[in-house]
Amino acid sequence: MLVQDPYSVLKLAALIIGGVLTVVGALCDLIGAIGLLRFPNYFVRLHAATVATIGGAVYPLFGVAIMSLACDFLGVARWFISAISFLTAIIITLTAPTGSHAVARAAHKAGVPVHPKACDLLEEDRKRGVVK
């Protein structure tokens, strides 16, 4: 392909990077789902869920934000799409762990089994009475 001007090189790069991020995000979602099925207990499954939220939602949104900037046929709408995708990605990054903290803490307090485990220092400290 013959490259006419530096602007089109930038656009091509944005399309490729955005596309790669989006495809990787789809793969992360699939692998996160497989992990949810394979992992043995609740707490380990949370790790697979993290793969699906950050890898499968935040990175594709960044990809869409980059990609839409290069799509001229969208007209003015491409700025809206890019800005909203970027903001949504940041908001997910801030709020997803908060939910994870809440459910993990609630599950441990409610006595959801941590087995198989190498150690559970939180349970030991709860029994000793240093953590409420």
Partner: peptide, 20 residues
């Protein structure tokens, strides 16, 4: 720090003990 730990797959913060 807690959010960063939870957002990296492989580590999840379960409880914070602020006094200790």
């Amino acid at each position: 720090i807690a959010n960063s730990i939870t957002n990296t797959p492989g580590t999840v913060v379960v409880e914070v003990d602020e006094s200790r």
